[in-house]
Write a protein that binds this DNA or RNA. Structure first.
Length: 504
DNA sequence: CGACATTGATTTAAATCAATGTCGGTGCTTTAAT
Protein backbone atom coordinates (compact mmCIF):
# COMPACT_ATOMS: atom_id res chain seq x y z
CA UNK A 1 0.00 0.00 0.00
CA UNK A 2 2.55 2.47 1.14
CA UNK A 3 4.73 1.93 -1.94
CA UNK A 4 1.83 2.65 -4.26
CA UNK A 5 1.19 5.87 -2.38
CA UNK A 6 4.79 6.91 -2.77
CA UNK A 7 4.64 6.07 -6.47
CA UNK A 8 1.51 8.19 -6.85
CA UNK A 9 2.96 11.05 -4.83
CA UNK A 10 6.24 11.41 -6.72
CA UNK A 11 5.62 9.98 -10.14
CA UNK A 12 1.85 10.20 -10.55
CA UNK A 13 1.38 6.52 -11.46
CA UNK A 14 -1.13 4.32 -9.71
CA UNK A 15 0.35 0.90 -10.51
CA UNK A 16 3.78 -0.60 -10.79
CA UNK A 17 4.91 -2.22 -14.00
CA UNK A 18 6.29 -5.70 -14.29
CA UNK A 19 9.27 -6.19 -12.01
CA UNK A 20 9.43 -2.71 -10.53
CA UNK A 21 7.92 -3.53 -7.18
CA UNK A 22 10.05 -6.64 -6.71
CA UNK A 23 13.23 -4.64 -7.26
CA UNK A 24 12.10 -1.85 -4.95
CA UNK A 25 11.08 -4.21 -2.16
CA UNK A 26 14.38 -6.06 -2.34
CA UNK A 27 16.30 -2.79 -2.15
CA UNK A 28 14.23 -1.62 0.80
CA UNK A 29 15.23 -4.85 2.55
CA UNK A 30 18.82 -3.74 1.95
CA UNK A 31 19.52 -6.59 -0.46
CA UNK A 32 21.85 -6.41 -3.44
CA UNK A 33 19.90 -6.79 -6.65
CA UNK A 34 20.70 -7.83 -10.18
CA UNK A 35 17.83 -7.03 -12.49
CA UNK A 36 17.04 -7.40 -16.14
CA UNK A 37 13.79 -5.72 -17.08
CA UNK A 38 12.48 -5.40 -20.62
CA UNK A 39 12.75 -2.09 -22.42
CA UNK A 40 9.99 0.31 -21.58
CA UNK A 41 9.18 -0.94 -18.08
CA UNK A 42 10.53 2.14 -16.35
CA UNK A 43 13.80 0.91 -14.98
CA UNK A 44 14.72 4.24 -13.41
CA UNK A 45 11.79 4.20 -10.99
CA UNK A 46 13.27 1.02 -9.51
CA UNK A 47 16.00 3.06 -7.88
CA UNK A 48 14.51 6.55 -7.85
CA UNK A 49 11.71 5.55 -5.51
CA UNK A 50 13.94 3.80 -2.94
CA UNK A 51 16.33 6.74 -3.17
CA UNK A 52 13.56 9.17 -2.23
CA UNK A 53 12.41 6.96 0.64
CA UNK A 54 15.89 6.48 2.09
CA UNK A 55 17.99 8.54 4.37
CA UNK A 56 21.17 9.64 2.65
CA UNK A 57 22.22 9.87 -0.96
CA UNK A 58 21.89 7.36 -3.80
CA UNK A 59 24.74 7.22 -6.30
CA UNK A 60 23.68 6.32 -9.83
CA UNK A 61 26.45 5.32 -12.22
CA UNK A 62 25.43 6.18 -15.75
CA UNK A 63 27.41 5.69 -18.97
CA UNK A 64 26.54 8.88 -20.85
CA UNK A 65 26.43 12.52 -19.92
CA UNK A 66 23.33 13.01 -22.04
CA UNK A 67 21.55 10.22 -20.15
CA UNK A 68 22.36 11.86 -16.83
CA UNK A 69 21.14 15.24 -17.98
CA UNK A 70 17.96 13.64 -19.31
CA UNK A 71 17.19 11.93 -16.04
CA UNK A 72 17.88 15.00 -13.96
CA UNK A 73 15.63 17.09 -16.20
CA UNK A 74 12.86 14.52 -16.04
CA UNK A 75 12.94 14.36 -12.26
CA UNK A 76 13.05 18.12 -11.93
CA UNK A 77 10.04 18.44 -14.22
CA UNK A 78 8.18 16.18 -11.79
CA UNK A 79 9.05 18.54 -8.99
CA UNK A 80 11.80 16.38 -7.54
CA UNK A 81 14.57 18.87 -6.98
CA UNK A 82 17.07 17.03 -4.78
CA UNK A 83 18.84 15.62 -7.81
CA UNK A 84 22.09 16.45 -9.56
CA UNK A 85 24.58 15.13 -12.06
CA UNK A 86 28.23 15.59 -11.29
CA UNK A 87 30.15 15.71 -14.56
CA UNK A 88 32.25 17.71 -16.97
CA UNK A 89 29.20 19.56 -18.34
CA UNK A 90 29.28 21.64 -15.21
CA UNK A 91 31.39 24.75 -15.02
CA UNK A 92 33.92 24.73 -12.23
CA UNK A 93 31.74 27.17 -10.33
CA UNK A 94 28.64 24.94 -10.59
CA UNK A 95 30.59 21.87 -9.73
CA UNK A 96 31.84 23.48 -6.54
CA UNK A 97 28.30 24.49 -5.69
CA UNK A 98 27.03 20.96 -6.15
CA UNK A 99 29.87 19.52 -4.11
CA UNK A 100 29.39 22.02 -1.32
CA UNK A 101 25.68 21.25 -1.02
CA UNK A 102 26.06 17.50 -1.40
CA UNK A 103 23.99 16.74 1.71
CA UNK A 104 20.88 18.29 0.09
CA UNK A 105 20.72 15.68 -2.62
CA UNK A 106 18.84 12.38 -2.66
CA UNK A 107 20.14 11.25 -6.06
CA UNK A 108 23.48 11.91 -7.66
CA UNK A 109 24.31 10.80 -11.20
CA UNK A 110 27.97 10.20 -12.00
CA UNK A 111 30.14 8.48 -14.59
CA UNK A 112 32.47 5.66 -13.56
CA UNK A 113 35.38 7.91 -14.52
CA UNK A 114 34.20 10.64 -12.19
CA UNK A 115 34.22 8.17 -9.31
CA UNK A 116 37.96 7.77 -9.85
CA UNK A 117 38.55 11.44 -9.06
CA UNK A 118 39.99 11.51 -5.54
CA UNK A 119 38.11 14.71 -4.66
CA UNK A 120 34.77 13.19 -5.66
CA UNK A 121 35.39 9.94 -3.83
CA UNK A 122 36.48 11.74 -0.68
CA UNK A 123 33.38 13.87 -0.79
CA UNK A 124 31.04 10.91 -1.24
CA UNK A 125 32.80 8.99 1.50
CA UNK A 126 31.80 11.72 3.92
CA UNK A 127 28.13 11.07 3.14
CA UNK A 128 25.73 8.35 4.06
CA UNK A 129 25.25 6.52 0.76
CA UNK A 130 21.88 4.77 0.78
CA UNK A 131 22.21 2.84 -2.51
CA UNK A 132 24.86 2.28 -5.16
CA UNK A 133 23.17 1.86 -8.54
CA UNK A 134 24.66 0.86 -11.87
CA UNK A 135 22.32 1.79 -14.66
CA UNK A 136 22.85 0.12 -18.06
CA UNK A 137 24.91 -2.43 -16.19
CA UNK A 138 25.76 -4.41 -19.31
CA UNK A 139 28.35 -1.68 -19.93
CA UNK A 140 30.48 -3.32 -17.23
CA UNK A 141 30.81 -6.38 -19.39
CA UNK A 142 30.54 -4.77 -22.80
CA UNK A 143 32.81 -1.77 -22.24
CA UNK A 144 34.72 -2.57 -19.07
CA UNK A 145 37.61 -4.59 -20.41
CA UNK A 146 38.53 -2.82 -23.60
CA UNK A 147 36.91 0.55 -23.66
CA UNK A 148 36.18 2.03 -20.27
CA UNK A 149 38.13 0.16 -17.60
CA UNK A 150 36.78 2.42 -14.87
CA UNK A 151 33.68 0.26 -15.12
CA UNK A 152 35.77 -2.54 -13.64
CA UNK A 153 36.78 -0.39 -10.69
CA UNK A 154 33.22 0.07 -9.41
CA UNK A 155 33.37 -2.76 -6.88
CA UNK A 156 36.29 -1.01 -5.18
CA UNK A 157 34.48 2.31 -5.23
CA UNK A 158 31.46 0.72 -3.62
CA UNK A 159 33.63 -0.80 -0.92
CA UNK A 160 35.13 2.59 -0.18
CA UNK A 161 31.62 3.98 0.19
CA UNK A 162 30.91 1.48 2.95
CA UNK A 163 29.37 -1.21 0.74
CA UNK A 164 25.83 0.16 0.50
CA UNK A 165 23.15 -2.05 -1.10
CA UNK A 166 23.78 -2.29 -4.81
CA UNK A 167 21.46 -2.45 -7.79
CA UNK A 168 22.79 -3.46 -11.20
CA UNK A 169 20.09 -3.04 -13.82
CA UNK A 170 19.93 -3.54 -17.58
CA UNK A 171 17.57 -4.54 -20.40
CA UNK A 172 19.81 -7.03 -22.20
CA UNK A 173 22.38 -9.43 -20.81
CA UNK A 174 23.15 -13.00 -21.74
CA UNK A 175 23.76 -15.48 -18.94
CA UNK A 176 27.50 -14.99 -19.36
CA UNK A 177 27.16 -11.22 -19.18
CA UNK A 178 24.94 -11.49 -16.10
CA UNK A 179 27.55 -13.62 -14.38
CA UNK A 180 30.31 -11.28 -15.47
CA UNK A 181 28.47 -8.24 -14.08
CA UNK A 182 27.90 -9.93 -10.74
CA UNK A 183 31.48 -11.13 -10.55
CA UNK A 184 32.94 -7.73 -11.43
CA UNK A 185 30.74 -5.99 -8.89
CA UNK A 186 31.33 -8.76 -6.34
CA UNK A 187 27.59 -9.24 -5.90
CA UNK A 188 27.85 -12.77 -4.60
CA UNK A 189 24.45 -12.98 -2.98
CA UNK A 190 22.37 -10.71 -5.14
CA UNK A 191 18.64 -11.17 -5.53
CA UNK A 192 17.99 -11.88 -9.20
CA UNK A 193 14.97 -10.25 -10.76
CA UNK A 194 15.22 -11.25 -14.38
CA UNK A 195 12.59 -11.08 -17.10
CA UNK A 196 12.64 -12.15 -20.74
CA UNK A 197 14.55 -10.16 -23.37
CA UNK A 198 11.98 -11.18 -25.97
CA UNK A 199 10.19 -8.38 -27.80
CA UNK A 200 7.27 -10.15 -29.47
CA UNK A 201 6.22 -7.09 -31.45
CA UNK A 202 9.55 -6.89 -33.32
CA UNK A 203 9.71 -9.19 -36.35
CA UNK A 204 13.17 -10.20 -37.57
CA UNK A 205 14.47 -10.65 -41.09
CA UNK A 206 17.82 -11.25 -42.74
CA UNK A 207 18.17 -10.45 -46.44
CA UNK A 208 21.18 -11.65 -48.42
CA UNK A 209 22.84 -9.83 -51.32
CA UNK A 210 25.75 -10.54 -53.63
CA UNK A 211 27.33 -7.13 -53.38
CA UNK A 212 27.23 -3.86 -51.52
CA UNK A 213 25.76 -2.20 -54.59
CA UNK A 214 22.82 -4.57 -54.62
CA UNK A 215 22.40 -3.99 -50.95
CA UNK A 216 22.26 -0.26 -51.40
CA UNK A 217 19.55 -0.65 -54.03
CA UNK A 218 17.58 -2.83 -51.66
CA UNK A 219 18.05 -0.35 -48.84
CA UNK A 220 16.58 2.44 -50.93
CA UNK A 221 13.57 0.28 -51.77
CA UNK A 222 13.07 -0.67 -48.13
CA UNK A 223 13.30 2.87 -46.86
CA UNK A 224 10.98 4.13 -49.59
CA UNK A 225 8.32 1.59 -48.74
CA UNK A 226 8.61 0.83 -45.06
CA UNK A 227 6.50 2.70 -42.58
CA UNK A 228 8.75 4.93 -40.53
CA UNK A 229 10.27 6.35 -38.50
CA UNK A 230 13.33 4.17 -38.70
CA UNK A 231 16.98 3.74 -37.78
CA UNK A 232 19.70 2.40 -40.10
CA UNK A 233 22.90 1.14 -38.51
CA UNK A 234 26.34 1.24 -40.14
CA UNK A 235 29.81 0.31 -38.89
CA UNK A 236 31.56 3.34 -40.28
CA UNK A 237 31.05 7.05 -39.86
CA UNK A 238 31.72 7.77 -43.51
CA UNK A 239 28.97 5.41 -44.58
CA UNK A 240 26.34 7.07 -42.42
CA UNK A 241 27.00 10.35 -44.23
CA UNK A 242 27.29 8.81 -47.66
CA UNK A 243 24.08 6.82 -47.47
CA UNK A 244 22.09 9.53 -45.78
CA UNK A 245 23.00 11.67 -48.80
CA UNK A 246 22.20 8.83 -51.22
CA UNK A 247 18.76 8.36 -49.68
CA UNK A 248 17.97 12.05 -50.05
CA UNK A 249 19.14 11.84 -53.67
CA UNK A 250 16.75 8.97 -54.14
CA UNK A 251 13.93 11.25 -53.13
CA UNK A 252 13.50 10.25 -49.51
CA UNK A 253 13.33 13.25 -47.26
CA UNK A 254 13.66 13.80 -43.55
CA UNK A 255 16.87 11.73 -43.51
CA UNK A 256 20.01 12.61 -41.59
CA UNK A 257 23.07 10.97 -40.10
CA UNK A 258 24.57 10.61 -36.63
CA UNK A 259 27.92 9.37 -35.34
CA UNK A 260 30.45 9.90 -32.58
CA UNK A 261 32.66 12.13 -34.68
CA UNK A 262 30.09 14.91 -34.86
CA UNK A 263 30.03 17.93 -32.60
CA UNK A 264 27.89 17.79 -29.50
CA UNK A 265 25.59 20.49 -30.84
CA UNK A 266 24.94 18.59 -34.06
CA UNK A 267 24.31 15.39 -32.17
CA UNK A 268 21.82 17.00 -29.84
CA UNK A 269 20.09 18.74 -32.75
CA UNK A 270 19.70 15.57 -34.82
CA UNK A 271 18.49 13.60 -31.85
CA UNK A 272 15.88 16.23 -31.04
CA UNK A 273 14.69 16.48 -34.62
CA UNK A 274 14.26 12.72 -34.71
CA UNK A 275 12.39 12.70 -31.41
CA UNK A 276 10.05 15.43 -32.59
CA UNK A 277 9.41 13.91 -36.00
CA UNK A 278 11.16 16.50 -38.16
CA UNK A 279 13.48 13.67 -39.18
CA UNK A 280 12.13 10.21 -39.84
CA UNK A 281 15.24 8.24 -40.84
CA UNK A 282 18.60 8.28 -39.11
CA UNK A 283 21.71 6.71 -40.64
CA UNK A 284 24.00 6.12 -37.70
CA UNK A 285 26.79 4.18 -36.05
CA UNK A 286 26.38 2.46 -32.70
CA UNK A 287 26.77 5.88 -31.08
CA UNK A 288 23.05 6.40 -31.64
CA UNK A 289 20.74 4.57 -29.36
CA UNK A 290 21.34 4.48 -25.65
CA UNK A 291 19.00 7.00 -24.14
CA UNK A 292 16.86 7.34 -27.25
CA UNK A 293 13.40 6.77 -25.84
CA UNK A 294 11.38 7.30 -28.97
CA UNK A 295 8.35 5.04 -28.62
CA UNK A 296 7.22 4.77 -32.24
CA UNK A 297 10.33 3.63 -34.16
CA UNK A 298 8.85 1.23 -36.74
CA UNK A 299 11.97 -0.27 -38.31
CA UNK A 300 15.63 -0.85 -37.58
CA UNK A 301 17.80 -1.82 -40.55
CA UNK A 302 21.38 -3.03 -40.27
CA UNK A 303 23.41 -2.14 -43.33
CA UNK A 304 26.44 -3.50 -41.47
CA UNK A 305 26.17 -5.95 -38.61
CA UNK A 306 27.78 -5.49 -35.19
CA UNK A 307 30.33 -7.83 -33.62
CA UNK A 308 27.96 -9.83 -31.44
CA UNK A 309 24.34 -10.89 -31.10
CA UNK A 310 23.92 -9.05 -27.79
CA UNK A 311 24.73 -5.72 -29.46
CA UNK A 312 22.34 -6.57 -32.26
CA UNK A 313 19.56 -7.26 -29.78
CA UNK A 314 20.17 -3.92 -28.08
CA UNK A 315 20.09 -2.08 -31.38
CA UNK A 316 16.92 -3.66 -32.75
CA UNK A 317 15.37 -3.16 -29.31
CA UNK A 318 15.05 0.52 -30.12
CA UNK A 319 12.12 -0.33 -32.35
CA UNK A 320 8.56 -0.64 -31.13
CA UNK A 321 8.82 0.59 -27.58
CA UNK A 322 5.13 1.46 -27.83
CA UNK A 323 4.44 -2.25 -28.17
CA UNK A 324 3.24 -1.93 -31.75
CA UNK A 325 4.20 -3.99 -34.74
CA UNK A 326 7.78 -3.22 -35.84
CA UNK A 327 10.47 -4.86 -37.93
CA UNK A 328 14.22 -5.43 -37.79
CA UNK A 329 15.98 -6.19 -41.07
CA UNK A 330 19.62 -7.19 -41.41
CA UNK A 331 21.08 -6.69 -44.89
CA UNK A 332 23.85 -9.19 -45.41
CA UNK A 333 26.51 -9.30 -48.07
CA UNK A 334 29.63 -11.40 -47.98
CA UNK A 335 31.63 -8.30 -48.83
CA UNK A 336 31.36 -6.84 -45.36
CA UNK A 337 32.43 -9.91 -43.43
CA UNK A 338 35.73 -8.20 -42.74
CA UNK A 339 34.38 -5.13 -41.00
CA UNK A 340 33.32 -6.63 -37.67
CA UNK A 341 36.47 -8.74 -37.68
CA UNK A 342 38.67 -5.71 -38.10
CA UNK A 343 36.71 -3.82 -35.43
CA UNK A 344 37.42 -6.60 -32.97
CA UNK A 345 41.09 -6.45 -33.79
CA UNK A 346 41.11 -2.70 -33.50
CA UNK A 347 39.87 -2.65 -29.93
CA UNK A 348 42.57 -4.91 -28.56
CA UNK A 349 46.19 -3.82 -28.13
CA UNK A 350 48.66 -5.23 -30.65
CA UNK A 351 51.74 -7.14 -29.55
CA UNK A 352 53.83 -4.11 -30.44
CA UNK A 353 51.71 -1.92 -28.21
CA UNK A 354 52.02 -4.38 -25.34
CA UNK A 355 55.79 -4.61 -25.68
CA UNK A 356 56.28 -0.86 -26.08
CA UNK A 357 54.16 -0.09 -23.04
CA UNK A 358 55.78 -2.67 -20.80
CA UNK A 359 59.22 -1.54 -21.93
CA UNK A 360 58.41 2.07 -21.11
CA UNK A 361 56.86 1.29 -17.74
CA UNK A 362 59.76 -0.93 -16.78
CA UNK A 363 62.18 1.96 -17.06
CA UNK A 364 60.46 4.22 -14.55
CA UNK A 365 59.56 3.98 -10.91
CA UNK A 366 56.78 6.50 -11.12
CA UNK A 367 54.51 7.12 -14.07
CA UNK A 368 53.03 10.60 -14.12
CA UNK A 369 50.35 11.68 -16.52
CA UNK A 370 52.79 13.61 -18.69
CA UNK A 371 55.18 10.72 -18.90
CA UNK A 372 52.38 8.43 -19.81
CA UNK A 373 51.21 10.81 -22.52
CA UNK A 374 54.73 11.09 -23.91
CA UNK A 375 55.25 7.36 -24.01
CA UNK A 376 51.92 6.98 -25.74
CA UNK A 377 52.75 9.54 -28.42
CA UNK A 378 56.27 8.27 -29.04
CA UNK A 379 55.28 4.64 -29.40
CA UNK A 380 52.13 5.47 -31.32
CA UNK A 381 49.65 3.29 -29.43
CA UNK A 382 45.96 4.14 -29.15
CA UNK A 383 44.49 5.75 -26.07
CA UNK A 384 42.22 2.80 -25.36
CA UNK A 385 45.08 0.34 -25.64
CA UNK A 386 47.03 2.22 -22.99
CA UNK A 387 44.10 2.32 -20.66
CA UNK A 388 43.53 -1.41 -20.99
CA UNK A 389 47.17 -2.18 -20.38
CA UNK A 390 47.34 0.16 -17.44
CA UNK A 391 44.36 -1.58 -15.89
CA UNK A 392 45.92 -4.99 -16.46
CA UNK A 393 49.11 -3.85 -14.73
CA UNK A 394 47.12 -2.46 -11.82
CA UNK A 395 45.17 -5.69 -11.56
CA UNK A 396 48.46 -7.56 -11.29
CA UNK A 397 49.73 -5.25 -8.56
CA UNK A 398 52.48 -3.78 -10.70
CA UNK A 399 51.07 -0.29 -10.78
CA UNK A 400 49.29 1.57 -8.04
CA UNK A 401 48.38 5.16 -8.81
CA UNK A 402 51.56 6.57 -10.30
CA UNK A 403 53.76 4.13 -8.46
CA UNK A 404 55.43 1.30 -10.36
CA UNK A 405 56.77 -1.82 -8.67
CA UNK A 406 59.62 -3.88 -10.04
CA UNK A 407 58.65 -6.75 -12.27
CA UNK A 408 59.98 -9.12 -14.86
CA UNK A 409 59.26 -7.53 -18.22
CA UNK A 410 59.47 -10.69 -20.27
CA UNK A 411 57.12 -12.60 -18.02
CA UNK A 412 54.57 -9.79 -18.00
CA UNK A 413 54.80 -9.29 -21.74
CA UNK A 414 54.09 -12.94 -22.26
CA UNK A 415 51.24 -12.88 -19.77
CA UNK A 416 49.56 -9.87 -21.32
CA UNK A 417 50.00 -11.17 -24.85
CA UNK A 418 48.39 -14.35 -23.74
CA UNK A 419 45.56 -12.53 -22.03
CA UNK A 420 44.85 -10.37 -25.07
CA UNK A 421 44.93 -13.25 -27.49
CA UNK A 422 42.45 -15.09 -25.29
CA UNK A 423 40.14 -12.09 -25.35
CA UNK A 424 40.49 -11.94 -29.10
CA UNK A 425 39.52 -15.58 -29.38
CA UNK A 426 36.47 -15.03 -27.14
CA UNK A 427 35.34 -12.12 -29.24
CA UNK A 428 35.86 -13.98 -32.47
CA UNK A 429 33.83 -16.81 -31.03
CA UNK A 430 30.96 -14.41 -30.31
CA UNK A 431 31.17 -13.04 -33.83
CA UNK A 432 31.07 -16.54 -35.26
CA UNK A 433 28.01 -17.33 -33.16
CA UNK A 434 26.29 -14.22 -34.42
CA UNK A 435 27.15 -15.12 -38.01
CA UNK A 436 25.73 -18.56 -37.43
CA UNK A 437 22.49 -16.87 -36.34
CA UNK A 438 22.53 -14.73 -39.47
CA UNK A 439 22.84 -17.79 -41.69
CA UNK A 440 20.36 -19.88 -39.81
CA UNK A 441 17.26 -21.32 -41.45
CA UNK A 442 15.31 -22.08 -38.30
CA UNK A 443 13.29 -19.68 -36.15
CA UNK A 444 15.43 -16.63 -35.34
CA UNK A 445 13.52 -15.76 -32.21
CA UNK A 446 14.01 -19.22 -30.77
CA UNK A 447 17.73 -19.09 -31.55
CA UNK A 448 18.11 -15.59 -30.17
CA UNK A 449 16.38 -16.52 -26.94
CA UNK A 450 18.48 -19.67 -26.68
CA UNK A 451 21.54 -17.42 -26.80
CA UNK A 452 20.09 -15.70 -23.72
CA UNK A 453 19.41 -19.11 -22.11
CA UNK A 454 15.68 -18.71 -22.59
CA UNK A 455 13.05 -20.84 -24.28
CA UNK A 456 10.41 -19.32 -26.51
CA UNK A 457 7.12 -19.33 -24.58
CA UNK A 458 4.76 -18.60 -27.44
CA UNK A 459 5.47 -17.72 -31.02
CA UNK A 460 4.13 -14.25 -31.89
CA UNK A 461 2.05 -13.86 -35.07
CA UNK A 462 4.85 -11.94 -36.81
CA UNK A 463 7.96 -13.82 -35.79
CA UNK A 464 10.77 -13.90 -38.32
CA UNK A 465 11.58 -14.53 -41.98
CA UNK A 466 12.20 -18.20 -41.29
CA UNK A 467 8.69 -18.38 -39.84
CA UNK A 468 7.20 -16.75 -42.91
CA UNK A 469 7.33 -13.01 -42.23
CA UNK A 470 7.76 -10.77 -45.28
CA UNK A 471 8.21 -7.07 -45.24
CA UNK A 472 5.02 -6.40 -47.21
CA UNK A 473 2.85 -5.88 -44.16
CA UNK A 474 5.27 -3.28 -42.82
CA UNK A 475 4.89 -0.95 -45.76
CA UNK A 476 3.48 2.52 -45.77
CA UNK A 477 -0.23 2.61 -46.25
CA UNK A 478 -1.07 3.06 -49.90
CA UNK A 479 -3.91 5.23 -51.09
CA UNK A 480 -7.33 3.69 -50.54
CA UNK A 481 -8.65 0.68 -52.45
CA UNK A 482 -7.19 -2.74 -52.14
CA UNK A 483 -5.17 -1.93 -49.04
CA UNK A 484 -8.33 -1.61 -47.00
CA UNK A 485 -8.64 -5.36 -46.80
CA UNK A 486 -5.38 -5.86 -44.95
CA UNK A 487 -6.04 -2.82 -42.85
CA UNK A 488 -8.43 -4.44 -40.45
CA UNK A 489 -5.92 -7.22 -40.01
CA UNK A 490 -3.22 -4.73 -39.19
CA UNK A 491 -5.47 -2.95 -36.76
CA UNK A 492 -6.42 -6.19 -35.07
CA UNK A 493 -2.80 -7.20 -34.83
CA UNK A 494 -1.92 -3.87 -33.30
CA UNK A 495 -4.76 -4.09 -30.80
CA UNK A 496 -3.73 -7.60 -29.94
CA UNK A 497 -0.15 -6.53 -29.27
CA UNK A 498 -1.19 -3.51 -27.30
CA UNK A 499 -3.43 -5.43 -24.94
CA UNK A 500 -0.76 -8.09 -24.60
CA UNK A 501 1.81 -5.45 -23.71
CA UNK A 502 -0.51 -3.70 -21.30
CA UNK A 503 -1.63 -6.75 -19.38
CA UNK A 504 1.76 -8.27 -18.78
C1' DC B 1 37.83 -8.78 -45.91
C1' DG B 2 37.20 -5.23 -49.45
C1' DA B 3 36.36 -0.39 -51.24
C1' DC B 4 38.82 3.37 -52.55
C1' DA B 5 42.90 6.30 -53.13
C1' DT B 6 47.59 6.82 -54.32
C1' DT B 7 51.75 5.55 -56.53
C1' DG B 8 54.43 3.69 -60.20
C1' DA B 9 55.38 1.60 -64.56
C1' DT B 10 54.03 1.07 -69.18
C1' DT B 11 53.12 2.84 -73.80
C1' DT B 12 48.22 4.49 -76.76
C1' DA B 13 53.94 10.47 -73.81
C1' DA B 14 48.14 11.20 -71.83
C1' DA B 15 45.79 7.50 -70.69
C1' DT B 16 45.77 2.62 -68.77
C1' DC B 17 46.52 -0.91 -65.55
C1' DA B 18 48.75 -3.20 -61.77
C1' DA B 19 50.66 -2.93 -57.26
C1' DT B 20 50.60 -0.98 -52.86
C1' DG B 21 48.56 1.66 -48.99
C1' DT B 22 44.70 3.07 -45.89
C1' DC B 23 40.62 2.68 -43.40
C1' DG B 24 36.41 0.66 -40.87
C1' DG B 25 32.78 1.90 -33.54
C1' DT B 26 31.31 2.86 -28.76
C1' DG B 27 33.02 8.02 -24.10
C1' DC B 28 34.65 9.77 -20.13
C1' DT B 29 38.11 13.17 -18.34
C1' DT B 30 41.52 17.20 -18.75
C1' DT B 31 43.90 19.46 -10.54
C1' DA B 32 50.77 22.00 -13.46
C1' DA B 33 54.15 23.64 -9.85
C1' DT B 34 55.48 26.99 -6.47
Amino acid sequence: MMLEQALKKWFGFTDFREGQKEVIEALLKQQDVFSMLPTGTGKSICYQLPALLAEGITIVVSPLLSLMEDQVQQLKSKGIKQVAALNSFLTEQKRKEVMASIHHFKLMYVSPEMLQQPSVLTLLRSQKVSYFVIDEAHCISQWGQEFRPDYLRLADVRKQLGTPPCLAITATATKDVQDDIKRRLRLHEATNIVYSVDRPNIAMMVERYHSTKEKLQALITFVKNLKGPGIIYFSSRQWTEKISYALREAGIDKVSHYHGGMSNEDRILIQQQFMEGQLSVICCTSAFGMGIHKPDVRFVIHFHYPTQLASYVQEIGRAGRDGRKSIAILLYSQEDKGIPRSLLDLELPSEQEIDAYIQAVMNVSRLTKEQEEQIRIISGGSETSWRQLKYLLEERGIMKGTEVRRFSADAIKAELRNHVSQRRAEKQQQLTEFERWIHSYSCRREKLLAHFSEALQSRPPHCCDNCGVTYQSYQKRKEEGEEKKSDWKTILAQLFHQSEGGAS
